[in-house]
């Protein structure tokens, strides 16, 4: 991802990216696991947790493999786009991430079905997992920015300045949009 607008001075971004993408998935999962175990136990399926955990780590692994497999394509696009095409590169990288997530999700659903066949209570739990994982993952990705690195900004591991909440930001954008639509008909 960090190969965009490559020049020797931007090499640190590539190293940061190599740390941050695994961190994004790993940290999100680590934060969500304790709560998920407690919910499983309370729902009475605590004994299946080793299987559930395998399913979840499997998902992470599949996403990682897919992203790695798509990496040459990403690198090609990033390297062949001029620095002025930052937004196009952002879009492309998002599509790649989304693609990897959707394919992995499909495999996840298939494996989850086997688990649900053993015990129907897993259905709601796994749905809850997806929501929880996405909820944390979005904020994690927001916190770990930049992944690609805007060519106009200096190179940092994290964006300088105080950390920010993605949901508050999203809400502000929509509120702003709504305000503009309603304010200037």
């Amino acid at each position: 991802m960090a190969t965009f607008a490559f020049e020797p001075a931007r090499t640190p971004l590539m190293l940061y990216g190599m740390v941050k993408v695994p961190l994004l998935f790993g940290a999100t999962m680590l934060l969500a696991i304790p709560a998920f175990y407690v919910l499983n136990a309370l729902r009475g399926v605590g004994q299946d947790f080793p299987r559930v955990l395998r399913l979840l780590t499997d998902y992470q692994l599949v996403v990682a493999v897919l992203l790695a497999a798509l990496a040459p394509v990403t690198a090609l696009v990033n390297l062949t786009t001029a620095a002025s095409g930052y937004q196009a590169v952002q879009l492309w990288n998002s599509i790649i991430f989304l693609l990897a997530a959707i394919i992995a999700q499909q495999r996840f659903t298939r494996q989850a079905r086997a688990l649900i066949a053993v015990d129907g209570r897993h259905r709601l739990l796994l749905r809850f997992w997806t929501v929880l994982y996405a909820f944390i993952g979005i904020q994690m990705a927001w916190t770990l920015r930049p992944f690609i690195g805007s060519p106009d900004q200096s190179i940092h591991f994290l964006r300088p300045g105080p950390l920010d909440n993605a949901y508050v930001k999203i809400f502000e954008i929509f509120a702003d949009l709504g305000g503009r639509v309603l304010g200037n008909p």
Binding site: L30, P34, Y37, I136, D164, Y167, V168
Partner: peptide
């Protein structure tokens, strides 16, 4: 104890959001 366990298990998530947010209301 169940109450304490559930909230503590969600504690890491609260900790993460607390560290990465500025919004008191959120």
């Amino acid at each position: 104890t169940v109450f304490a366990t559930v909230i503590a298990s969600l504690g890491p998530i609260v900790g993460f959001f607390s560290l990465s947010s500025q919004s008191y209301a959120f």
